[in-house]
């Protein structure tokens, strides 16, 4: 059965809880909580991507679009219409859902390469919209002045506060998704992945299931986008371009897309790679990403999360 063990979750929770406290006391990693905010934002997205790609077997090369829809919904509605940021997050999610259903319904009938190309094209089109509708989005220069978040007068105005906010949202998404995977819905998704013919013969409405998962992952990406916008207070279109969609794929491939843990490991690792360890490579880091992705595809198809099992298997033989 697909039981998720409790121990790693406990360890993870304690780690997340204590990390800022530890980091504060160690000058060398003082800035790590800031990285972990980004890691959390990525993680929110990769959890949805992992459900979509790893479990349901549907590829998306355009998820940065939903990330951008959330960010711009928050940015535009707060700065130009003075709406409450939390309401903007909801509106962004609703918009992402609507777009996901409209684009997903015809796209998800496609398989494999066709689906990959459709989502890729969709992502590029949305990015062009972000660039071109300057009146709303500020165009390629982006838009600033996006307010931070607060709740009942409590403001998430420090990195540490925002860190906890983001990771609480990640935790909610994580537990929801874990439960989902262990439930009949998760089983139906895995069935679709293994054999669409057999799944539909068992009465599973394939297109509906795919659209629901696609929309769910779009909502997570949109919320991540909003959290990003309210954290950075500034957004521009290049954050939400195709390269970022591909980076999301790299994250889940690196971590391992067949478990939700892979999403967590992949996004945290990626955040550190791109902001800390590969920083000196500057823009050339994409060569490293490409090589890493190539190596993982060839030598580590189950991702880093599959590594311990693989080693254990070797040792036993």
């Amino acid at each position: 059965m697909l039981r998720i063990r409790k121990a790693p979750m406990g360890v993870g929770a304690i780690f997340i809880l204590l990390f800022p406290w530890v980091a504060e006391r160690l000058p060398a990693i003082e800035h790590y909580p800031d990285l972990m905010v980004f890691a959390g934002i990525y993680c929110l997205m990769t959890i949805g991507m992992s459900l979509l790609m790893g479990y349901a077997g549907q590829i998306s090369l355009g998820h940065a679009a939903f990330y951008g829809i959330g960010a711009y919904a928050s940015g535009i509605l707060t700065t130009q219409y003075n709406l409450n940021p939390w309401l903007c997050i909801l509106i962004g999610s609703a918009a992402a859902t609507a777009v996901a259903v409209v684009v997903g319904a015809p796209s998800l009938r496609l398989r494999g390469h066709y689906l990959a190309m459709a989502t890729l094209a969709f992502g590029i089109i949305i990015n062009i919209v972000f660039r071109e509708e300057a009146e709303w989005t500020g165009g390629p220069d982006g838009m600033g002045g996006i307010p931070g978040l607060d709740i009942f007068g409590y403001s998430f105005d420090s990195i540490h506060k925002y860190y906890y906010l983001v990771w609480i949202v990640v935790a909610i998404a994580f537990f929801f998704t874990i439960r989902l995977i262990q439930s009949p819905t998760g089983r139906a998704l895995r069935a679709i992945h293994a054999s669409e013919a057999a799944a539909s013969a068992m009465g599973i409405d394939i297109s509906r299931s795919k659209i629901v998962v696609f929309a769910f992952s779009a909502i997570l990406a949109s919320v991540a986008g909003s959290l990003y916008a309210h954290y950075m207070n500034f957004i521009n279109p290049s954050t939400f371009d195709t390269l970022f969609s591909i980076k999301l794929v790299i994250m889940i491939a690196l971590g391992g897309m067949h478990t939700i843990w892979g999403a967590v490991v992949g996004s945290v690792l990626f955040a550190f790679l791109s902001f800390e360890w590969l920083h000196q490579f500057g823009e050339y880091e994409i060569v490293v990403y490409g090589l890493v992705l190539m190596m993982v595809t060839i030598y580590l198809p189950e991702g880093l999360v599959g590594l311990p099992g693989r080693i254990a298997q070797r040792v036993r033989r």
Partner: peptide, 21 residues
Amino acid sequence: ENVMVGRHLHISTSFFKCGLG
């Protein structure tokens, strides 16, 4: 699990109920 998938038609598979556990 293969057989359990076959019960799909006779159970509740609501996305939110499932996710909330």
